[in-house]
Nucleic acid binder design. Structure first.
Lengths: 268, 268
DNA sequence: CGGAGGATTGAGAATCTTCAATAAACGTGG
DNA sequence: CCACGTTTATTGAAGATTCTCAATCCTCCG
């Protein structure tokens, strides 16, 4: 639960009253052992999940066995918001470690969203962040080298873990095998192993018993063009949020970065 | 406008009253010439857009010039729903062809969502579809060969264009250069050219003056493991949609696909 | 007709993969 | 706490895919 609260706190100032509301409906906890399916392809989701402890992955497997991990779900992450649309899942969610998960009834959740603009805005924010992470994964897979992919993913996971835990450690417990990393990064485990070994020799990372240590974060970030913007870590400005309160606050921040070509032609 | 209506109609039964509501607020149309930026990295979005005519791409460019197209926006597509959170864009949206776009004020839009459960559910559906397309792009980039990537993308675009236009053509006007395709598929233009040439020779596709013809859709789909599920083309069942109406309809479809291991341990 | 942007082709090189063998780490039961 | 089996990681060598660079060829358009 703490992870989830840390997460939401990143996005908005939440007061005790709101925490009370949230506590009220997050009563059911389910635990899975490492490697179990939490959501299966083709299932119609009727609940939302919040990762409480442990790691899970969203992934898809092609007919011939090739597997792609779409993204990682860390403590504090909420999924599937799409369950709100009662759709069949087009992918599977599987635990990587032993995992404990809060299960939330969809209808209850929608009710909660309606009671508080702050809560709904936080969830919107979380959903946006999730999409952002997907887009970053696309860039990583499409346009980065093996070394960059690995470094970039490690930095992302470190950043997200610190966010979830409210810490700022330079080490990252990484409960993933080379196969997992390979399936996330569009590489083979062999090549992941080789590349990480090269990165260790280059002094970019250290690794001991499943814990990654990134001594010089700056250097690694520079090497693999890591930029944290997509994680949307800044605090949410609720006054700008249209769901938050109905008082129509006129034109918010008008930031005009009008450099370069741009010539919209108004027609009506 | 028609494209957008086609799009929404795929998701839910919309009556004239709803169309009237929608027409009311979609008054402003903006046009861009091919290659102009519609949304820039770092800008704070305050409006939503619906592509009316033409193609646009969402993309990111790394410092050293490598570019990755994240996804394509076709007629009827709505973006950026994330503008509802008033965030800075972490990517750029650029027109590929001359494009006409409907601009919607965020606050007005939120009002509309509140007036009709059918509308809001349709938009949820659209947002879910968009995320699904991103996930599919991840699988495509991570685990597919060049030939599969190209075939798969062509099939997706064909499917989406037909959906937007309400048609079922086997030809697809493709206003993309080899560079565009390469940037979308994580390849080089040279290799895209070579691979498409091979596909033409293999009789998988034909191409004349920017129009792709897929004679044997089945064969191509088999070759590149194309499965349309992720496009969520089926009609939305509104009775299951929690936003649609508040009458708490008990437990919807309980589909129990309990095959294989799965052992959740209930704790509370 | 000439120019410009886009597509194609060739040759050599880099990155990443495959297959196979070995080594290290981990968990379990004695 | 150690021995043993199992899983995971590493390493080598050869091969496939994809990339780079550079030249050539279209096609469209004024």
């Amino acid at each position: 639960m703490q992870a989830f609260k840390n997460r939401l706190s990143q996005y908005a100032v939440m007061d005790d009253q709101i925490w009370a509301l949230i506590d009220e409906f997050t009563t059911k906890t389910v635990t899975y052992r490492a490697g179990e399916d939490i959501v299966r392809v083709g299932e119609v989701a009727e609940t939302l999940f919040i990762v409480n402890k442990g790691w899970a992955v969203r992934h898809r497997t092609l007919e011939d066995g090739r597997r792609q991990i779409v993204n990682f779900m860390l403590p504090g992450d909420i999924f599937d918001l799409q369950a709100l649309a009662c759709l069949e899942a087009d992918h599977t969610v599987t635990s990587v470690t032993d995992v404990s998960i809060l299960v939330i009834d969809t209808r209850e959740f929608v009710q909660l969203l309606r009671t508080s603009g702050d809560i709904s805005s936080s969830f919107w924010w979380a959903a946006v962040q999730e999409e952002s992470i997907l887009r970053e994964q696309i860039v990583r897979l499409g346009r980065r080298s093996a070394k960059e992919r690995i470094g970039h993913l490690l930095l992302e996971l470190q950043r997200r873990m610190n966010g979830a835990m409210g810490t700022n450690h330079s080490q990252l417990p990484l409960p993933l095998t080379r196969v997992d990393l390979a399936d996330a990064l569009g590489l083979t485990p062999v090549h992941v192993s080789r590349t990480m070994s090269a990165m260790r020799h280059a002094g970019l990372i250290e690794e001991t018993r499943g814990v990654i240590l990134i001594d010089d974060r700056e250097r690694l970030a520079r090497l693999c063009h890591f930029n944290t913007d997509y994680l949307h870590l800044r605090r949410l400005d609720l006054s700008k949020f249209p769901m938050a309160n109905d008082t129509s606050h006129a034109g918010a921040a008008t930031n005009e970065k009008t450099n370069g070509k741009r010539a919209p032609t108004y027609r009506t």
